[in-house]
Design a binder for these strands. Structure first.
Lengths: 109, 109
DNA sequence: ATAGTATATGATAATATTTACATATATTCA
DNA sequence: TGAATATATGTAAATATTATCATATACTAT
C-alpha cells in the first residue's frame, strides 16, 4: 500500500519536474488562462505545449474547461504553488555550497 | 536568469521523482543512516541503490560522510520532508476525483 | 455546407533514465 | 601483507521521456 502511495507521489513530482511544465504552472499562478496565452508565454511549439498540458492534467495538477474555441486551464490545488516556493530553499542551500567550493578553489590557488 | 532557476528547480524535482529515491528520503526522516541499512530498507540491488544515492547527492538533497567502512547519508534540508508532506494533498484531491468518476460510472450503469 | 481558428492526438526519431552486471576503491582486521 | 567488507563506478541493454511533424477534432462564423 505504502509502496503504491510512494509511486503516486513520484508521478506527481515527475509531472512537475520539467522546465516548460514549471513555466506553465507559474503562468497559472495568476489564475486560469487559455492555451492561446500559455503558448506564447512558455515559448515552443503548439503541439509540444499541448502535450505538456496533457501530462500536467493527467497527473491531476491542472484541470481544464472549454470556453468556445478556447480551452482554459487552471491549477487544481494551490498547494502546488507552496511546493514550488519551498523548492527554493534547498536550491539556495545547494548554490551556497557550490559558492563555498568556488571560494576555496580561488583562495588557495 | 529566471529560466535557469526554473531549470534548477526542475532538476531538484526530478531528483526526488522516483519511487526508490522517495523511499530513501523517507528512511532518512528518522535521521542519518548508513548505506548498509538503506539498501535492505528500499530493496533492490546494491549498485542501483548506490546510483540513486548519487543522484540525490548531486542534486544537493543528500549529503554523505564516511565513517570507517560505512558511508552515512542524511537529508541536507528538512524542507524536503515538508515538500513530501504537501504532495499528499494534490494526491488526495486526484484520488477523490477518480472516486467520483467511479461512482458516476457505477450509479448510472 | 465551408472555411478558419484553437487545441489535441498520433507517430516517430532523438535523447535521457533506469537497471543489472562486472569491477574498482577504500577501509579494517588478522 | 592479504582477505574481507562496504560502497562506488563503468558500461551496456532495456525502458521512458521529449520534441517535432503531420493530422484530427471541435467550434465559430460566413
Amino acid at each position: 500500500m505504502n509502496e503504491k502511495i510512494q509511486e503516486m507521489k513520484a508521478d506527481i513530482l515527475s509531472a512537475m519536474a520539467h522546465p516548460i511544465r514549471l513555466k506553465i504552472i507559474e503562468k497559472l499562478r495568476q489564475g486560469p488562462c487559455c492555451v492561446c496565452r500559455i503558448i506564447p508565454y512558455v515559448g515552443g511549439e503548439q503541439s509540444n505545449v499541448s502535450h505538456h498540458l496533457a501530462i500536467l492534467k493527467r497527473a491531476g495538477i491542472l484541470s481544464s474547461e472549454k470556453k468556445g474555441l478556447e480551452v482554459w486551464y487552471e491549477v487544481t490545488d494551490p498547494v502546488i504553488f507552496e511546493i514550488l516556493d519551498l523548492i527554493k530553499y534547498p536550491l539556495i542551500k545547494e548554490l551556497k555550497r557550490k559558492n563555498n567550493l568556488l571560494n576555496a578553489l580561488v583562495e588557495n590557488d
